[in-house]
């Protein structure tokens, strides 16, 4: 079955699998710098998929989105994070995950769930799009899982950005990109998000002397 597919479709499926793998790697990663590197790799894989889809479907505006992803997600944002981490002096810090085995098992369950949800879509019966949609949904859900299980601001940001990668992958692989207006808007928003995150790191550190967001707990509803 798989070998009957055209070569480029096989390549897209391989890349999709690797993107999912990087999501798992992010979930289990404990060191900040490695996490940033894995995130950059994920961006690179998404950009590569975009180029492949652009070449195959001769949708030329996708080259532009690929370049945008490369610049934003592979170079600019990891570089910004790198610089921030060094300036905040937390590049050696370990970000421990509580119950890593449990987290990874939940992650596996989420992937199965993503496939389960996309199974009944009729128009996908014979195409690789079912796989790519299921995988992009899984990447989105894993990004959310990472946001929930991490307690350091930097790893939450990386989880958030990886979630964004899943969305972008969905847009490219399932629908050959979004209309240009929308893509420009999304890229602009992502950039602003990255900048605001940077501003926030300093605010949080100044206010609680740490980037441990567990300590942001003054506003919870509790017994008066």
């Amino acid at each position: 079955m798989l070998t009957q597919l055209p070569l480029y479709q096989q390549a897209i499926l391989t890349l999709a699998a690797m993107i999912l793998f990087t999501s798992f790697a992010l979930l289990a990663q404990q060191r900040v710098l490695s996490m940033i590197h894995v995130f950059a790799w994920q961006g690179l894989l998404v950009a590569a998929t975009t180029v492949l889809v652009a070449y195959d479907s001769s949708a030329h505006h996708l080259y532009f989105s690929a370049a945008l992803t490369l610049v934003l997600k592979v170079l600019l944002i990891p570089w910004l994070l790198h610089r921030l981490v060094h300036r905040l002096g937390i590049h050696r810090q370990a970000h421990t995950v509580a119950h890593p085995a449990l987290v990874l098992m939940v992650a596996a369950a989420l992937v199965i769930f993503a496939y389960y949800v996309t199974l009944p879509i009729h128009q996908l019966a014979h195409s690789i799009t079912r796989n790519t949609i299921a995988i992009s949904m899984a990447v989105v859900l894993l990004g959310m899982l990472m946001l929930i299980t991490r307690n350091k601001a930097v790893s939450q940001v990386i989880g958030f950005m990886s979630l964004e990668n899943g969305l972008f992958f969905a847009a490219v692989a399932a629908t050959h990109g979004m209309p240009m207006v929308v893509e420009l808007g999304i890229a602009f928003d992502v950039l602003v998000v990255a900048v605001i995150f940077g501003v926030f790191f300093f605010h949080i550190r100044d206010s609680i002397d740490s980037l441990d967001v567990d300590r942001l707990n003054r506003l919870a509803e509790r017994e008066p």
Binding site: H203, S207, I208, L216, N217, R218
Partner: peptide, 10 residues
């Protein structure tokens, strides 16, 4: 810029 405000914004 109070700690509460930063928490709320985050």
């Amino acid at each position: 810029r109070t700690p509460e405000a930063i928490e709320a914004a985050w």
